[in-house]
Amino acid sequence: MGGYAAYIWSSYGVVVAVLAVMLVSSILGVRARERELSALEERVGPRRQRRQQSGLKDAHHDA
């Protein structure tokens, strides 16, 4: 590499490192959020459904 190997390889190293960090952090970020969402849906989902059903019953009473 004509005496410039250190500069050239560290350039490519930096590029690979930054690209890898961006990929890993993006994928980990999505996974963590999707886990959080499904946990939340499990907790909130049934309660909301119940509320909606009772809301329907109320509507029938009104009628």
Binding site: L23, S26, I27, G29, V30, R33, E34, E36, L37, L40, E41, V44, R47, R48
Partner: peptide, 20 residues
């Protein structure tokens, strides 16, 4: 694409929390 999915998921979490 990966990050947009993450951001959309974060928004759904926020919405669900608010409705909760």
């Amino acid at each position: 694409i990966v990050r947009m999915r993450g951001e959309l998921t974060a928004r759904r979490i926020r919405l669900l929390r608010l409705s909760d």
